[in-house]
Design a protein around this nucleic acid. Structure first.
Lengths: 186, 186
DNA sequence: ACCTGAACACCGTTCAAGT
DNA sequence: ACCTGAACACCGTTCAAGT
């Protein structure tokens, strides 16, 4: 089992420090934090940041990964039982986005890098739960029959933009969007 | 009336050339064009660009101003008579956004610069028509009673994000959003 | 192996000099 | 008055040298 166990001691610790610093800074000020700043906060040289993360986008994504995992956990425990699962899901995403300005950057960057959508692992897990939530709500007659996971991505992207630009109330947006997903017979 | 008529000959022509070049380049590649590039395309020095426009944002906004005027004209002639005025308005905005990648930048930058929303003149005119369209559609019972101009801005912002990131179909988004603006009794 | 930080490339913006 | 473009400031990324 001694296949690929090379990462030694301080290397792993440095990686974790960088990630920790990145999470805190991105959450607070979003995409505008500078990498040298992250390095300073982590107490390492810039080169170390680049050793562990190929570029800025990779660090943003890695810092967001934890949030995706948290959101997935919330979805599994809170949105698969009872009514209005999708509504609860989207409201939770809105709240997390409001608290972590860096999440938007990760969500939008993923779109930017054409095609390579399924980055980090957490994303795959998330997509699976969202599919379940949609299926459940549809079966319960709470959603239009043609509502898909793609629709949810669409709305999450918009939600992210609304929160990021601070234009108006994201809850109002959700009200409109969710109303739009209702079955034909209101 | 010789109050403030100082701008002479080439100055005005240069300003127009810069604007022309900026319109073409922004439309094609959006917010990622570089100002030295605009200067080169316009056949002037960078300094001249800055002489006429204080900074990048101002140039983006000025280049977009024309589009706003065009959209306003469309709205006045096509969305104040007949049914589904707001739907026709938003579909037109979606089409213009699809053709001019720089418009998104202007729309989103305006939000970014907290508070100072009402830049260029064209925007004020636009806001006025949109208010009329909303009022008409509401009176005709085509929209929820609580639908406001702010809602339209919200959706235009989302539309812009959807088109810009190329995430999914913006027409699908409009379908959902407009459905969300329907009166309670579908 | 991994770390450091000076150095490089690049782009927005300014400003001394020219007309 | 206005124009030009070299120069400056800044930030992402690389890499030679050190441990």
């Amino acid at each position: 089992m001694s296949t690929e166990r090379r990462t030694r001691a301080d290397a792993e610790r440095n990686r974790e420090r960088v990630l920790e610093a990145a999470r805190a800074l991105f959450a607070e000020r979003g995409d505008q934090v500078q990498l040298p700043e992250v390095a300073r906060a982590a107490g390492v040289g810039v080169g170390t940041v680049y050793r562990h993360f190929p570029d800025r986008a990779a660090l943003v994504e890695a810092a967001a990964e934890q949030r995706f995992a948290e959101i997935e956990h919330y979805a599994r425990t809170r949105c698969l039982a009872g009514p209005a699962g999708l509504r609860r899901y989207l409201e939770h995403v809105g709240e997390v986005l409001s608290r972590d300005r860096g999440l938007s950057a990760a969500i939008e960057a993923a779109r930017g890098t054409a095609g390579s959508e399924p980055r980090g692992e957490a994303r795959a897990g998330l997509e699976a739960v969202v599919a379940e939530v949609v299926a459940r709500d549809r079966a319960a007659g709470e959603l239009r029959d043609d509502c898909t996971v793609a629709d949810v991505y669409l709305l999450v992207g918009c939600l992210s933009a609304v929160v990021r630009t601070g234009s108006g109330d994201w809850r109002r947006f959700l009200d409109l969007a969710l109303h739009g997903l209702l079955p034909r017979a209101d």
